[in-house]
Design a protein around this nucleic acid. Structure first.
Lengths: 225, 225
DNA sequence: ACAAAAGTGTTATTCATACACCCATGC
DNA sequence: GCATGGGTGTATGAATAACACTTTTGT
């Protein structure tokens, strides 16, 4: 039943951090939508849909993100075009996939309806189509990019403590980092400036608040902007 | 005059090294094809064309590469999907672009006809569509990836001297490298094994020949293969 | 006082870089 | 012999990592 042209779709892997209510440890979560028709009816799938002919690709990713979560991403990047013949039953579909980071505080307040839920990437069920592969690849990119760029800030608000920034790295990279060395690494990177304020109310020494130096891009994408 | 669906195309940036006949310095070259119809008739463009509905994306990139140059790439990777509305006059076109590396010796023997030529990336003319941006981005990826992967081997034959391998790095990274340090870096990486043979006939000490350890991928692409 | 996390100091180790020098060949 | 690039040795400084220690708060 092949037709003349392949169908173009845009999907997005949206990452946010959530802390486990019992252990308090942050992990990576994604929103998914329930498929309300065949194929894969009932299964969870990445937010997305067919590309309208007048929409830019990134535009389309942004609007699907807004529609399903009510959120605006603090970081958005193209991931990959998945186009294997047979990856979807029926007509040929080529999906251009984006990945996005949203602020964790906002994500907690995000829309959750009958057909939208957040899942932990630690224990994903079987998703629709090849979406498990897509999420795995997006996670791999998130983890490798976390090591050499400054995307961690996209999970945080305007101001943050170094402990919070470290927590982001630990959640994504899945290993503890030495607080002392982490502090020095960040400080010497010059990407962060102290606000002069402190967080009080904790039962220990108040932590200094920092702000991200907005004149620096979160990641170097070369000639693309 | 927009139609219902965007048109899907696949193009490829094909890299090879050529040494300047006068200076003897290697630089990066790409093959381009002349457009024989509007839009941009007469301009040079990247090899590519519309995606046939039964072709896999990578498959399509491979066959365009074979058709225009008669070559098989030693490395092929998806670069990016370019889809900005208005990047091509007429119907909306989304191009999924691959980049490829071909062995330099073979490339010298590659097909060159009336409508195909090789251009130095050092002095590119104005290409059709947004292909200058695409080449710039591909070059950026090539250069950054050269620093942390082993793709340099894709430019070389089965056996090579460390001087040849170093020449590849120097050509792409556009700066001289210390032969002594380069040697140690490569040797400690364990990606290369001496064949036991030497290159004689030079007017200096014979250079040891090496072979790439085929059990290691040229680049780590994570969960994708 | 004590716990807990913020923040500083110190040292060992690995890695990058620069460069002096010896080796083996063709001429 | 000399020129040329192949190949080895070694010193220096920077980046990374491990961990002891001091500071400042709440209870």
């Amino acid at each position: 039943m092949s037709q003349q042209q392949a169908v173009l779709a845009v999907s997005t892997v949206i990452f946010s951090l959530r802390s486990d209510p019992t252990t308090g440890i942050s992990t990576v979560w994604i929103p998914v939508v329930r498929r309300i028709r065949e194929p894969h009816e009932g299964r969870w799938a990445l937010p997305g849909g067919p590309l309208r002919v007048d929409d830019d690709l990134e535009e389309a990713a942004r609007s699907h993100l807004l529609e399903t979560t009510g959120l605006t991403p603090k970081y958005l990047e193209q991931l990959y075009a998945f186009g294997k013949v047979g990856r979807s039953p029926g007509p040929r579909v080529v999906s251009i996939v984006y990945w996005a980071l949203v602020e964790s505080d906002e994500a907690a307040r995000a829309t959750v309806g009958e057909n939208v839920t957040w899942l932990s990437t630690d224990e994903l069920p079987e998703l629709a189509f090849d979406h498990n592969l897509i999420v795995d690849y997006a996670l791999w990119r998130l983890r490798t990019k976390m090591e050499y760029s400054r995307i961690a800030h996209a999970f945080l608000g305007d101001t943050f403590t170094l402990a919070q920034l470290r927590e982001v790295h630990e959640a994504v990279r899945q290993k503890p980092l030495d607080p002392a060395n982490f502090r020095r690494t960040i400080e010497s990177s010059k990407t962060v400036v102290p606000t002069g304020e402190f967080v009080t109310g904790t039962r220990h020494r108040p932590a200094r608040l920092y702000r991200y130096d907005g004149s620096i891009d979160l990641a170097d994408s070369g000639p693309l902007q």
